[in-house]
Structures are given as structure tokens and as C-alpha cells.
Design a protein around this nucleic acid. Structure first.
Lengths: 243, 243
DNA sequence: TCAAAAGTGTTATAGGTACACCCATGT
DNA sequence: ACATGGGTGTACCTATAACACTTTTGA
């Protein structure tokens, strides 16, 4: 039987002994953040099987042999939330030797930001529960999922400034206060109202509408919509928020 | 024989049929950038075996079963350059189904920035040649290595602003002009001399030394050293360059 | 004394920060 | 009329950009 000679036949599958190098697998884990009305949550499943039975965990799955990594992440997202057409982003690959008790499994973490919709009914055999957890009240997690979640949260904070992830969790018509709340919640900061508005209105991708809020017991706020095309143009020229 | 029921036994190795899910492997590819005197290069090897025999490629290798991903990347870096103690950073994982002609192989790309030292003698069987290539004169590459290189270059440009990668490729004592050249080369921009210096001197981690350049036929420049401790303090408070 | 690159200074403009204040609505 | 949050204006200060200028060296 052939043995693997490091560096001799690099990346040549035929020279690798099954029993040494193929005791490994790769999975995708999804960190699905949900934002709604100044609350940031994350979607966790409760595991129905060993290892880590009954622990909460990030939803994840092995990648099918004929499936791209991105597709696998989208599949998981879609299975759980029925959402399609959501942009997902690779965060990082976690591959510590001992991260999985049953063997060598590396996992590629993906990130999405969605509105916390009602959850699709799930097969009870694969997860005993599925639930949105507030980001500052996370139970003990299986595997290294705590670390994956923390890294992903940092990544979310960074990406929200460089991409229009946020546009998926705002209503079609929104007030500048809602817009500010979103960034305050996710970044964990607060901003001066006047200065925030000045900064944000300069960027021409927030379109002021004729319409206003109704039925509130204070001055109604004017509504804005997001001009995605303009945003993309500006992004192409290097635009990003600097909050 | 057990078959894999999607979602039923998530991440449970024992339920996965070898012949369906284990025809895969993962490797690490290193994008080793070299910077010296206003020149940015990348270290490529020429493949000595099929597939893509004789093509230039990023140095990479399969990850050993008992080896962490980071360790694998460091091993490759060390084998080629004899450098140790170099910070490496994960860039992204590339996993298109058809990216490798011989089977399902995903690869985790790593990035490093080093001084282009003399190369360690290499086993001729694993690579027929090893060479630094100027970043704007890259030959056709094997696999999807062109894409990996491009993504990694973008990542380098971004990281150089947020981390002190650059400190590894400057001499212990350097002039502000050298410092400026480095950022100009890597970012592909030019900066006004006076403004650049003003901006950079404000940050207290460049220590002006008593010493000056010698033997140049113009006014000798004052030399600076890098105060890594101070930099780390500032980084902890959220510092990054904004060039 | 000249070329070359180091290093400093000046000015106009833009942008950020910290406020105070006014406005429109429902109760 | 008042509480509530929406929305605007101002004054100060700092950062930036463009550019001209002075300084030090070797040849």
C-alpha cells in the first residue's frame, strides 16, 4: 500500500492512505443572527444526539460530496428559517485537532443576519429544539461553538460597516431612529442623535420618502428607503461606515 | 451499512458511510508575501507532479491527522523559508466542488508577510523550483490559486492597517521614508510626505532614535524603532491606520 | 555650489463633537 | 398644556490636503 510522503505528491489524492488521512470530515456551522427592534439574537438548536446531547449548539451539518461550501450554509439556513436569497458570509474555519470528540472534523463557520422569523418546523430527530437566544444570554454550547459565536459576532460588527447586511433586517420604510438603533445595538455603542443623522444623510443611499409615521403620540418620524443601487456604486468606490 | 441521514446524526462520524463522505480531504495553502525595499513578492513553487505538473502554485500540503490548521501552515512556511515565529493568519477556505481534478479537496488559505530571505534548499521531488515572484508579474497558476492569491492580496491590504504585520519586514531601525514606502507599495497608493509624517508621528509607537543614516549623498534621515508594546496597547483600544 | 532627499511650516477647508433648542403629535 | 420623541442649528475644535519652503549631506 502506498504511504503518504509529505510534500512528494502534494494534493494528489491517489497517494494518500485512506486510513491515515481520510479519517476526517468537514462541516459547516451557521451563525444566524436575528435583529428586530433593537434586539440582537442568535439561532441555536438543541442537540438531539450524542455527542453533546441536549446541549445547545450552532446549526451545522456535514457538507455533501457534491455540494459547495456556500451552498451547504444556505441549505442549513433555508431548512431552519425558510429564508432564501439571504447573503451569507464565510467567517473562519475552525480545525483544532481535538475539537470534535469523535474524530477529526474541521468546520467552516458562516454568518448571516436576518429578521427573526417564525421558525420552520424541524425534524425532532435532528434537533430537539430550535430557538432564538438573546446575544447576551447564551447557554453553554457544544463543541467549540462558544468560540465560533464570539469570533462571528466580532465579524458581524466589522462587516456591518462594510456591507449592507443591515438592509435585510429593516422594514422597507424606516426612520432614521430605527437606523441608528440598529447600529447601536449591533456595535454596542451609542451615538449622538444629531451627529449620527448628519453623517448618515450625507450618504445618498437613504432616500427620504414623502411618507411619515402615523399614530404615535409624538412628532411622527419621516420614513426613508434604501437605495441599494446607489449603495453598491458607493461601495465600489470604497465606501464604508466609520462609526 | 449505515447511511448518512442528513441532519439526523449531525457531526456524528460513526453514521457516515466512508464511501460517500470520506472521499474528501483538506489542505492548507500558504500565501507568503515578501517585502523588501519597495518590492512586494509572493513565494511560489513549481509543481513536480501531476496534476498541474510544471505549473506554478502556492505552496501547500495536506494537513496531518494530528496537526492543527495553524501548525500545518507554519510547517509549510518553515520548510520553505526556515523562518519561525512569524505570525500567520487564516484568510479564507476555498471549497468549490470541482476545484481539484482528483477529488473533493477543500483548502484553507493562510497569509504571511516576511522578508524575502534566501530559500531553504528544497526536496526536488516535491517541487521542481521555488521562487519569489513580483506581485504584478504572476504566471498562470495551478488549481484556483490565482483566485486565492487575489483574495489574499486584498486581505493583506486590509490587515496591514489593523495589525503590525509590517513590523516583520522593516529593519530594526528604519526611516519614516522607508515606513511610507512600505505602505505605498502594499496599498498601491502614494501619500504626501509631510502629511504622512504628521499622521504617523502622532501615534506614539514609532520611537525616534538618536541615530541617523550614514553615507548617503543627501541629508541623512533620522531612524525610528517600533515600540510593539505601545502598539498593542493602542490596538487594544481600537487603533488602526486610516490611509 | 549643486543635486537629492530629509524634514518643517502655512493655510484653507472639511469634518467631528457637544450641546441647546425647536417641532409635531396624542392624551 | 405637557410629555414624548423627532428633527435642526450652532460654535468650537481637530483633522486633512495641497503646497511651499528650509536643511543636511556627498560629490
Amino acid at each position: 500500500m502506498k504511504t503518504y510522503q509529505p510534500r512528494l505528491l502534494q494534493e494528489d489524492l491517489y497517494s494518500i492512505p485512506i486510513d491515515a488521512f481520510f479519517k476526517s470530515a468537514f462541516s459547516v456551522d451557521c451563525v444566524i443572527f436575528g435583529y428586530h427592534e433593537a434586539e440582537l439574537k442568535v439561532l441555536l438548536i438543541q442537540r438531539g444526539t450524542e455527542p453533546f446531547e441536549n446541549y445547545w449548539a450552532l446549526p451545522g451539518d456535514l457538507v455533501y460530496p457534491n455540494e459547495d461550501l456556500d451552498s451547504a450554509a444556505l441549505r442549513i439556513l433555508n431548512d431552519l428559517t425558510s429564508l432564501t436569497n439571504i447573503p451569507i458570509q464565510q467567517v473562519k474555519t475552525f480545525g483544532k485537532v481535538d475539537r470534535h470528540p469523535l474524530g477529526r472534523v474541521i468546520t467552516i463557520a458562516y454568518l448571516a443576519l436576518v429578521e427573526p422569523t417564525d421558525l420552520a418546523p424541524h425534524a425532532s430527530s435532528w434537533a430537539s429544539d430550535t430557538r432564538w437566544h438573546p446575544i447576551d444570554d447564551i447557554p453553554q454550547l457544544a463543541f467549540d461553538h462558544r468560540e465560533i459565536l464570539e469570533v462571528s459576532l466580532e465579524e458581524l460588527r466589522s462587516r456591518i460597516l462594510h456591507e449592507d447586511l443591515w438592509s435585510k433586517v429593516l422594514p422597507a420604510k424606516f426612520s432614521l431612529t430605527q437606523f441608528q438603533e440598529l447600529f447601536e445595538t449591533i456595535l454596542g455603542k451609542t451615538f449622538d442623535k444629531g451627529n449620527f443623522r448628519k453623517k448618515v444623510v450625507k450618504f445618498k443611499f437613504l432616500q427620504k420618502l414623502e411618507e411619515a409615521q402615523r399614530g404615535v403620540s409624538h412628532r411622527p418620524s419621516l420614513l426613508y428607503s434604501f437605495d441599494a443601487k446607489r449603495y453598491q456604486e458607493m461601495k465600489a468606490n470604497g465606501f464604508s461606515f466609520e462609526f
